[in-house]
Design a protein around this nucleic acid. Sequence first.
DNA 1: TGTATAATGATAATGGTTATCATTCCACCC
DNA 2: GGGTGGAATGATAACCATTATCATTATACA
Lengths: 136, 136
Amino acid sequence: MIMVIIPPMQRLTIQRQAILDLINSSNRHWDAEEVNRELSDRGQSVGIATVYRGLTALEEAGLIEGIQFYDRKRYERADKSHHDHMLCTVCGHIEEFSHEKIEALQEAIALEKDFEMTGHQLVLFGLCAVCRNASK
Amino acid sequence: MIMVIIPPMQRLTIQRQAILDLINSSNRHWDAEEVNRELSDRGQSVGIATVYRGLTALEEAGLIEGIQFYDRKRYERADKSHHDHMLCTVCGHIEEFSHEKIEALQEAIALEKDFEMTGHQLVLFGLCAVCRNASK
DNA sequence: TGTATAATGATAATGGTTATCATTCCACCC
DNA sequence: GGGTGGAATGATAACCATTATCATTATACA
């Protein structure tokens, strides 16, 4: 049993628990629509507005992690170490990567510019190996 | 007189020329609404749909550069060397920076992951110096 | 057990962006 | 120089992700 401190969320309701369990059960990057559909398919239907509120609350509580991708926000498990993303613009595949040195350089730049960095977003766009081979 | 090859755009109309001139005349990062408003104020009103289409066409032609910021797309002059952005989440101020080493590391990562990178987007979020001092 | 506060869910609204479509513009050909 | 076809325009409707509204339901706790 792991105790977790949940600051801004008052109640971890069954709906929010369902959302959290779903996201924790996979390595996918879910958007709100996908969460809504998948929960419906599993017979634990949750209203779309509640999905949005739940995702926001869970993110604020640090239980999941949200990333703004191009046109929509996606959420993934929070128990992974920090990483950035590369997005295949053909098939939508998302690959993760992490690079300590890039992180450090960002910190250095912020410091130099007198900027108090609260977050960052690095997304590489391009073709994944599969799509590149398919297009040849 | 500088010749420019314009691949995907058929016609550089007066509306598109007005948009281009506006963006070229400043260092700002414009969104469609701002372009629309500013052109109206200058008495060269251009329909909002035309602004959107024009911005897209000009970007595809490489005459301006578009960046997806958090909630909207912004456009800036294309005749600047490549750079990334830091966005103050309080006042909206955008600061530019460029870092050769980060660029190189991104290339290396893409290569390693067998990913054909066509672009990238790095935005640092946080508080600019002014807002940080104001909040103290 | 009552009460205050939070969460839910259906639905309306918002806001940035794209689609539609009739009209206008313009390059090019005879 | 007039005709023609493809492209662009602009008013407006539609789209789509997200947020607000509000009546109802759930829950913690005094």
